[in-house]
Amino acid sequence: MKITYLNLNSMKSTKFFMSAIICLALSTSFTSCSDDDDPDPVLEEEFITNLTLTFTNTADATDSVVLFSTAPDGFEDGTSTENIVGTFSAGATYSLSLEILNEQEDPADDILNDDIIPEADEHFFAYAVNGINLTMTRDASDIAGPDGSKLGVNTTWVAGAISNGNLQIRLIHEPTTVDDSDEFGSATGGSEDFNITWTGVAIL
């Protein structure tokens, strides 16, 4: 009796498992059928394609120097190209306005005003020059950055004697420490969202 019972039991379990396996196999093929749709392209965010630095002579609005950096595939990992339009006039004072855009969107996303400024306490713009007689100050109207610093979006630049050199702008994300005592600014830690240098900037 017991043996028969056991046999029955094992037959039942065999059937049960076979059917379970078949069911699961079938459900597998259904899942495979259902996701055959083409994937959507990723809408890349925190994406920067264009950075423009516009220096405007405070005494003469028609005198300006514009530094462009563009990367159609994005600043993150696309190849970027830099261009310079105009030259500084020795002795003049310029106010700098920044524009950071994602032009893959239409209309373009304003990354500076929509993303960076609202999180000013986690960002810091640092500038540097080499070989060119430019000095700068962070304006009183500049936005507050991390640890009592000034973010570096509203700045005033003074062109000194005739010279030719390089100008760098960096955007540091979540720096550990920042120091803007020399106005240009320096930072430790964090990571650079961009680090762009224009070579051959001139004061005539």
């Binding site: 597998t28 093929s29 996701d35 994937p39 959507d40 392209p41």
Partner: peptide, 17 residues
């Protein structure tokens, strides 16, 4: 059978398709 899905909501281009 293996099915990999890379969620596009990340806003970052898919590393693995």
């Amino acid at each position: 059978f293996q099915d990999n899905f890379a969620n596009p909501d990340t806003g970052v281009r898919r590393l693995i398709p």
